[in-house]
């Protein structure tokens, strides 16, 4: 879901950069130094996750993990994803430096939104089972929303929004399932060993 360089119009690139800067500023507003290593480790997970190809389904897609980062980090997912995307652009040539803002916003903001969805669901369905269901939804929603935002960015270039959105959504259905399960296990594990980490 990394948009390449030279695809989007300057207006979309500028808007993406501004929104990404805003989100990163919010994420860095109250730096919690005790959680800094957690942020770095999850950023590393995002960085490596893009290399994990999922051979299920029609295409070759890769893990995104933005839902997991959102649920565990909240707004701090913005700086984490920004740092990982910079390194992916420089070292893997995925995406690019000019589209960095758009890609950061697409992945990180969808992660933040799925974090809010996760918290709402946990409040709605208390108990360990509700937490599991909420974690699965948070992980899957992150991917779905990232596809939605990517399609929206592409809609302002040559491809139509509906076609792009449908394609991205269908191709990422297996990723959504896999990431839902990953987030479920991660949240269940953290709830057991370090429950204070989940109270953002």
């Amino acid at each position: 879901m990394h948009v390449s360089e030279g695809v989007l119009s300057p207006a979309v690139l500028g808007a993406g950069a501004a929104l990404a800067a805003l989100g990163t500023a919010v994420g860095l507003r109250r730096p919690d130094y005790d959680r800094l290593m957690t942020v770095a480790l999850l950023s590393a997970a995002f960085f490596v996750g893009s290399l994990v190809h999922i051979p299920i389904g029609p295409g070759s897609v890769h893990l995104i993990l933005n839902g997991l980062l959102g649920v565990l980090l909240g707004w701090a997912a913005f700086p984490a994803i920004l740092a990982a995307l910079v390194l992916q652009a420089l070292l893997f040539q995925y995406g690019g430096l000019t589209v960095l803002g758009v890609n950061t916003f697409n992945m990180a903001f969808s992660g933040v939104l799925s974090a809010y969805a996760y918290r709402a669901l946990v409040r709605l369905l208390p108990g360990p089972r509700g937490r599991k269901a909420a974690a699965f939804c948070g992980g899957a929603l992150g991917v779905a929303l990232a596809g939605f935002f990517t399609a929206a960015a592409l809609a302002f270039s040559d491809e139509g929004f509906l076609v792009a959105a449908k394609l991205l959504f269908l191709a990422h259905l297996p990723v959504m399932a896999v990431e839902g399960v990953i987030t479920l296990f991660a949240v269940t594990f953290i709830a057991r060993v370090r429950p204070e980490m989940l109270n953002l």
Partner: peptide, 11 residues
């Protein structure tokens, strides 16, 4: 549509 675009790698 999926048959027309079988792969969604990142580069």
């Amino acid at each position: 549509l999926l048959a027309a675009f079988p792969s969604f790698a990142h580069r």
